[in-house]
Simulated scan of single mutants.
Amino acid sequence: MCGRYAASANPDDLVEEFEVEVDRTGEPGRSILVNPQEPPPGTPDFNMAPSKQAPVVLTRPLRESDEAYAEGRGPVRQLRLLTWGLVPSWAKDTKVGVRMVNARADTVLEARAFSRAARTRRCLVPAAGWYEWQASPTVTDAKGKPRRQPFFVRRVDGTDCALAGLYEFWRDPAVGSSADPMAWLTTFTIVTTDAEPGLDRIHDRQPLVLDPEAWERWLSPDVTDADAVEDLLRPAGPGRFEAYAVSRAVSSNRSNGPGLLEPAPPEELEGVVDPMTGEIIAGAS
């Protein structure tokens, strides 16, 4: 699964990196959070958690209010703030989103909640990398459960990850006018696949990360054939990522800042398995 990631880039940087034509991150959007989001949406967030609004790249038609609408241009690549945790259009309320932060690549084309979005509403979720928790095979916590050590996983080449995502629109029947921005909640989920060798020593799942040459087809609303989408869901070969243990502070969604990406000092590691070698690197019993 993918339950936390680092969205540490500014919108201006994402616009350039992902060749975005329209930046909508400054527009008001509906949030499901009770309290104001911290850090604010659209600013660097080193501990992105479900239910937060996050920058997402997608391809959509222009609105009539857009300057270029009169030119008759087709769908354009946009950067928007979407809520993490997909709420299907048929859902009775938004609570279902907390159970749909991830979608399995092997079942996404058949699952009722994801199948339509998988064919027509795909997106990219920019991330510096993601966090995953490893259950220790040798050390337990105070409750007798395996001690969980967070790791940060990033691309070896230092570029941002483009996590494969799906998005959906949900209409709130309690809001009278569909023209009211608060009548709509736009949400997304991150597609996951089997973890590659090495990373599977941390967790058995990982996000599906798309390389730049796959972005255009993944984002294209014209690619709707199930076989074509299934081909896009196949992960690239192993060796693109590196992983290292980080502070357990990331386990609290109140923790934030670039310090979360720093490697954890050896004295903080207990019963941790090296993802590359499989050896216990500290606290062996």
Rank of each mutant, 00 (worst) to 15 (best):
S247C: 03
G198E: 00
L86H: 04
P212W: 01
E67H: 05
R205I: 10
W184K: 06
L166M: 13
A127G: 03
W215E: 08
P11A: 06
G3H: 12
V56Y: 01
A236V: 07
L82W: 05
R73G: 11
G165I: 10
G97T: 02
L163V: 08
P212V: 07
P266S: 14
K92Y: 10
D225A: 15
S220P: 02
W170V: 00
G72H: 03
R148Q: 14
V108I: 12
G176V: 15
T187M: 01
P36Y: 02
R24S: 06
Y131N: 10
A9W: 10
L163G: 08
V153R: 02
G165C: 07
P137V: 03
A135I: 02
D180H: 12
L14S: 04
M100H: 05
S177D: 15
G158P: 01
G259V: 06
D222N: 14
A142R: 14
N253Q: 13
A135S: 13
R116S: 11
T159M: 06
A284V: 09
W133I: 12
G239V: 12
L82Y: 09
A179I: 08
T224K: 15
A174L: 15
F46E: 03
E64N: 08
K145F: 06
D66A: 08
D66R: 09
V98E: 11
P150M: 02
A174E: 15
R104S: 14
A117D: 07
T186K: 06
A6C: 10
I202R: 01
G97R: 04
L210H: 09
S285D: 14
I32M: 11
R240L: 11
S178N: 15
R147G: 00
D45N: 13
G26H: 07
V15K: 12
L166W: 07
D45M: 00
P275Q: 05
F151Y: 12
V191C: 05
R155K: 14
G85H: 01
E267Q: 10
T224D: 12
R116M: 08
R147A: 14
C2Y: 00
R4E: 15
Y131P: 08
E268I: 00
R254Q: 14
L79A: 04
G271P: 02
S252D: 13
A179F: 03
L219S: 02
R201L: 10
D222R: 14
P275L: 10
G278Q: 03
T59Y: 05
P197R: 06
P235W: 00
R60G: 09
M182P: 00
Q78K: 01
T189E: 04
D194I: 07
V108W: 07
A128H: 11
